[in-house]
Simulated scan of single mutants.
Amino acid sequence: MDKIMKTALRTLVYAMAVCLIVWAFLPEWRTVSLGLLVGLAASSMNAFLLRRRVEMVTLGAAGAGPRKRGLGLGNRIATVLLVAMIAYRFPEDLNMPAALAGCMVMPFVLLVAAYIHNKRQS
């Protein structure tokens, strides 16, 4: 799981670097690239929240510790809502569709990273 997460995070950092380069050199694409950048940041935070939640459930199922309760999906939805509220509040700086699309990137990156990792294992 750690190798998959590390690969996905590295890919996401590269995508964020591309967004920063587009923001710096293409002024007509600034709102789109900044919206995508904010969405990618929220997507990475959601991935870490999901990873922590999966580890908590795994430890609880193995009986290694007390069963912990948390907000789970609520935290991840609140993160996306926060991005949407920021994009709605500052439409001249952030593009709402790009920000929301950026929020959905990390699960697909994780899926591709897991597929590549499993192909290398077998």
Rank of each mutant, 00 (worst) to 15 (best):
R30T: 04
R30G: 02
R30Y: 03
T31P: 00
S33G: 02
L34V: 03
L36W: 02
L36H: 00
V38Y: 02
G39H: 04
G39L: 06
L40G: 01
A41W: 05
A41N: 05
A41M: 15
A41G: 15
A42L: 06
M45I: 12
M45K: 05
M45Q: 09
A47K: 01
F48K: 14
L50K: 01
R52D: 13
V54C: 09
E55R: 09
E55K: 10
M56H: 07
V57Q: 11
V57C: 05
V57T: 07
T58E: 14
T58Q: 14
T58M: 13
T58D: 15
L59V: 02
A61G: 00
A61D: 08
G63M: 13
A64Q: 12
A64P: 00
G65A: 12
P66I: 10
P66Q: 15
P66D: 14
R67G: 05
R67I: 12
K68S: 13
R69D: 05
G70M: 10
G70S: 12
G70Y: 06
L71Y: 10
G72V: 01
L73G: 06
N75Y: 12
R76K: 10
A78G: 08
A78F: 11
A78P: 02
T79R: 07
T79M: 14
T79C: 11
V80Y: 07
L81W: 07
V83C: 04
A84M: 14
M85R: 08
A87Q: 02
R89H: 11
F90K: 04
N95S: 14
M96K: 03
A98D: 05
A99S: 12
L100N: 08
L100E: 07
A101N: 01
G102F: 01
V105F: 09
V105R: 00
V105H: 01
V105A: 12
P107F: 09
V109N: 00
L111D: 08
